[in-house]
Computed example of a mutant assay.
Amino acid sequence: MKLDGKVAIVTGASSGIGEAIAKQLANEGASLVLAARREEKLTDLASFITNQSNGKAIVVKTDVTKKEDMEQLVEQAKQEFGKVDIVVNNAGVMLLSFMKNDEVDQWSQMVDVNIKGVLYGIHAALPDMLKQESGHIINVSSVAGHEVFASSAVYSATKYAVRALSMGLEKELSKTGVRVTNISPGAVETELTHHITDEEVLNMFKDRASSMKALQADDIARAVVYAVTQPDYVNVNEVVVRPMQQ
Results as ranks from 00 to 15, higher is better:
15 S>P: 02
30 A>G: 03
58 I>S: 12
14 S>C: 11
102 D>S: 13
30 A>W: 01
35 A>S: 03
48 F>I: 10
47 S>D: 04
19 E>Q: 15
60 V>N: 04
92 G>Y: 02
25 L>C: 10
11 T>Y: 07
80 E>D: 01
44 D>H: 07
22 A>V: 05
58 I>A: 05
78 K>P: 01
81 F>D: 05
61 K>P: 10
4 D>E: 15
38 R>D: 06
107 W>A: 12
61 K>S: 13
39 E>K: 14
43 T>S: 05
4 D>A: 13
95 L>W: 01
54 N>A: 14
37 R>E: 07
73 L>D: 13
45 L>E: 09
33 V>I: 15
19 E>D: 10
105 D>A: 15
79 Q>T: 05
35 A>D: 10
72 Q>D: 14
53 S>A: 12
16 G>P: 12
72 Q>I: 11
9 I>W: 07
27 N>R: 09
64 V>R: 07
53 S>N: 11
22 A>E: 10
9 I>N: 08
44 D>P: 00
105 D>G: 05
2 K>E: 13
13 A>Q: 10
9 I>S: 08
31 S>Q: 14
91 A>I: 07
49 I>M: 05
108 S>P: 00
85 D>E: 05
104 V>F: 14
57 A>G: 10
57 A>I: 02
102 D>Q: 13
12 G>R: 03
55 G>N: 11
42 L>P: 02
97 S>E: 08
6 K>W: 01
33 V>P: 04
96 L>I: 02
78 K>Y: 01
91 A>F: 07
33 V>N: 10
43 T>K: 14
92 G>Q: 09
12 G>D: 09
22 A>R: 11
101 N>L: 01
59 V>Y: 04
42 L>T: 03
99 M>K: 04
13 A>S: 10
40 E>V: 04
85 D>Y: 06
2 K>P: 06
17 I>Q: 13
39 E>A: 09
21 I>Y: 10
70 M>T: 14
106 Q>S: 14
5 G>D: 11
14 S>N: 11
78 K>W: 00
7 V>F: 07
61 K>M: 07
29 G>S: 06
83 K>M: 08
91 A>C: 05
99 M>S: 14
84 V>P: 14
42 L>Y: 03
43 T>Q: 14
68 E>V: 07
13 A>E: 03
69 D>Q: 06
77 A>F: 02
81 F>G: 06
108 S>C: 00
72 Q>Y: 09
5 G>R: 11
104 V>Q: 14
32 L>M: 15
111 V>G: 05
59 V>N: 05
91 A>L: 03
66 K>D: 10
105 D>T: 13
75 E>V: 09
24 Q>C: 03
109 Q>Y: 00
36 A>K: 12
69 D>P: 03
20 A>H: 12
18 G>F: 08
32 L>E: 06
76 Q>W: 01
61 K>H: 01
94 M>E: 14
9 I>E: 12
57 A>K: 05
9 I>G: 12
31 S>A: 09
80 E>I: 00
19 E>Y: 08
32 L>H: 07
101 N>V: 01
47 S>F: 01
49 I>L: 04
29 G>P: 08
83 K>E: 12
68 E>F: 00
48 F>L: 13
40 E>N: 13
102 D>A: 15
30 A>H: 01
111 V>H: 11
29 G>Q: 11
60 V>H: 09
44 D>A: 15
67 K>F: 04
27 N>K: 11
95 L>Q: 09
101 N>W: 00
78 K>L: 01
10 V>Q: 13
